[in-house]
Amino acid sequence: MKDMLETVVPKAINWNRLEDEKDLEVWNRLTVNFWLPEKVPLSNDLPSWGTLTDHEKQLTIRVFTGLTLLDTIQNSVGAPALMPDAITPHEESVLTNIAFMEAVHARSYSSIFSTLCSTKEIDEAFRWSAENPHLQAKAKAILDTYAPGNDPLKRKIASVFLESFLFYSGFYLPMYWSSRAKLTNTADLIRLIIRDEAVHGYYIGYKFQRGYEKLDEAGQQELKDYAFSLMFELYDIENKYTEELYDELGLTEDVKVFLHYNANKALQNLGFEALFPPEVSEVNAAILAALSPDSENHDFFSGSGSSYVIGKAVATEDEDWDF
């Protein structure tokens, strides 16, 4: 069987003949969004960093090493593990971009560290990340799913949960600091990471849906059960991780709401319905504003938000609009 596969003629990728338009759409979006940490003036955060207590500093560094671990996994194991499952050659190319950007993300946290922290603090935090049972438990749960021989669609589920859910217990903190006008340059960098992860979760979720729709009803049910049970398992770990990190600042309950909100979005990326009801998923407005500055939620119907909007220049390609 293997010999037969090896006799297949190697094919050059032709971007002028697409099997799935979404591959090009996402390739374009990812490449236009390319960035490096050097673009962000992190050192402007030094005065702000100095206003944090020792505990707040330690928490921040720990949260960022936790995020570094997830990015490292996605760069070296996650995205490469999805490549052999790719349906189109263009999907493989997109995954190489995803893998590389995860390396950029992982590298960015070290830029933050070298700007703000001492070597001793950095080493201590990396030691913590290797020893923290909850962080290691979530890494293991994901890595087990990525293992060779596992179901390609289950790998995509794990990947979407990592991209769209597991990062958020960590992303909460820089958004929280930003909402209090602290570490705002660091927050700008984190927003670039969040933007990338959103495209990754969307794309891998989209590819999951293409595979899922080909299954019979029993196959779909099995996979959906798997997704929800993995979500419960990860949610349980995230709760403990969140409590350990955020209890002292009194932020745990607020972070948990953010987890519910993101768990629902991760499930939506897979095409599934939300798990957590609205009353436990409504994120505090300051955090939402930190996520998407200048884009308040509009509800003209109930009279909140401004009705006729923006005087700001909008990016449209004029040739596309006749009027």
């Binding site: 959103a198 938000g305 909007v309 990016a315």
Partner: peptide, 29 residues
Amino acid sequence: NRNFGETYALSGRIIAEKCKVPLLYTFEL
């Protein structure tokens, strides 16, 4: 998706402005 920051629900804002009609509501995913 709010994760796209400032461009969250941007198409709604562009259309509202271009067509001179209200942006009635925004939601995620």
